[in-house]
Nucleic acid binder design. Sequence first.
DNA 1: CTTTCGAACTGTATCGTTACAGTTTTTAGC
DNA 2: GCTAAAAACTGTAACGATACAGTTCGAAAG
Lengths: 343, 343
Amino acid sequence: MDNKKISGGGAPSAPERPTLKTIAFMTGLGITTVSRALKDAPDIGAETKERVRMVARQLGYQPNRAGVRLRTGKTNVIALVLSIDEEIMGFTSHMVFGISEVLAGTQYHLVITPHSHSKDPLVPVRYILDTGSADGVIISRTEPDDPRVELMHDRGMPFSTHGRTDMGIVHPFHDFDNEAFAHEAVRALVARGRRRLALLQPSSKLTYYSHTRIGFQTGLHEYGAEEVPLRITTDNPLADIKDTVEALMRSPHAPDGIVCSSSGGAIAVNAGIEAAGFRLGRDIDMVAKQSTDVLSWIRPEIITVSEDFRHAGRELAKAVIARIDGVEPELLQSISPPVWPKT
Amino acid sequence: MDNKKISGGGAPSAPERPTLKTIAFMTGLGITTVSRALKDAPDIGAETKERVRMVARQLGYQPNRAGVRLRTGKTNVIALVLSIDEEIMGFTSHMVFGISEVLAGTQYHLVITPHSHSKDPLVPVRYILDTGSADGVIISRTEPDDPRVELMHDRGMPFSTHGRTDMGIVHPFHDFDNEAFAHEAVRALVARGRRRLALLQPSSKLTYYSHTRIGFQTGLHEYGAEEVPLRITTDNPLADIKDTVEALMRSPHAPDGIVCSSSGGAIAVNAGIEAAGFRLGRDIDMVAKQSTDVLSWIRPEIITVSEDFRHAGRELAKAVIARIDGVEPELLQSISPPVWPKT
DNA sequence: CTTTCGAACTGTATCGTTACAGTTTTTAGC
DNA sequence: GCTAAAAACTGTAACGATACAGTTCGAAAG
């Protein structure tokens, strides 16, 4: 070990961290008084409070988290439950950054609780509930009938979800308006004269699968286009997406427009289109959702819509904290509209 | 609040979490004995240990972290210090996943400690040291003369860094062999008949800037090529990279080969090349490092080298834990070779 | 002058764990 | 049979914070 003593004399190198005791000693007050003064309790004199706060600031006092947690049960932790399975374009980090940004202004720490989403997704949630290791939880990849939501609701654990559920439980969430996205995507394609449209949709397990579908279908109906079925999702490997699209393009039912729910998928779709000898902008148009402005660098012909994951992270963090503070869940639900590029 | 009682009778809904006291009561032993039995202390009988372990397993006992932390000072937390500034292709999440994977098999939790890298990077590190909020720290974006490394070393805080330093402090790190990457990239380009080579390098503040430069330069020398200077780094906005490359391609000094230190940079470089009317594979070749297999989907002509951030995360986590356990830092340094595609 | 009351402050117990200093029981030694 | 030592187990205090039940003191009420 390389614990370096600065002075050789026997004095410990690190200055002891101040505690309530330290402040009590310095002010000549009792520990309880100091504790209550720092909490702005009503039965402490104004002058005393001021004095205590001064000394605390001077010493750089920060309450010991273990002490608070042991006594009160409050962990001051927000857990983010993440699937560590493959994710091509890394939107997760943007969400983490958004959450961090909000938590940085609070007493909360962010703890990452991972799980492999091939395994039981309840495991990490159950762990958090059983060990009481967080005051609030954020989950993503929300499903319409999500058992994690039910479990946390039943146990009274504050949480917010990235994506909605459809199970009659009112809870905080943030969602991207995938319905509007798909609907407007159809409009944009029809405006370019496209009529035979395909949809690369998300996994049917996730809630936004149905939102995307509904938006797409009402769009087809409203703007007078027809669907070319595409039997593959953004959860499939890129190589499979490419092969499927290539085969579809070579078939007599080739679409002339396509809507993609992810940027990774869009890249693979484009590869399939080009492998079949077609070109974006000329033979077919594509609208794709992206979390970072990368698609237009790849093929400027792709019509891009941005989903801001950092913003989502901020909203999710704010929501779960408000829920911890007792705000009603109805007031903690938000939906972001799709952002189209300025023209 | 929606704390739901399951039974209306007055019994608390959540079964109380078992503590050492619970086990002591059930086995008829003292709390101390139970504690020591679970730690496999030498002064506890084999039979007793077995009995205690049985009951503990049955109750699903997990030590209360706050209790342990308060008494021993051990936090069981690894802090990951992250810059929340822009990062296009999201390699961070891969590193987080790699770290999570290793920590999942241990008692450690992962806490994300963010900072804006425009602000003082010492702030989060100082916070961790002053509040004692972690047993070990992982940092990235390491600089050759990194003040965070010096601070943690002086205070005896175990840590590992993504990237090396050059300040005479021996510490655990994991690094990608950027020198070999740049060197081999030059060889690959020369093998295709390219001789006038440019390098899109990382920010000169980071340690791997010099590794990349050295590899590039020894490559030029060894394989007989010359450098076309490119005055921009991967830290610049993609638009600036594109414009600079476009201007360079239009100038009389246009390179016929280019090495890129990031995939985001590669995309922008390619855009610049195409904007100037040139084409990869025909007029110029590119070798680029990528963290996820996305470049070859974009332009198959790009020669890609993979850097595995998930692996880096795993190595960093293992290293910091080993350091906490007292393993000498010399033994906790590793360098990953560049991975070229199979041919 | 005594009683009552409220403002301001404090001591003690407790959360769950572990370090330390015992205590009891068993076994061995002579 | 008595002492010594080893083996197995336990009680108490402490980590830092807070809930709760006081205590002290001075001023107002009677």
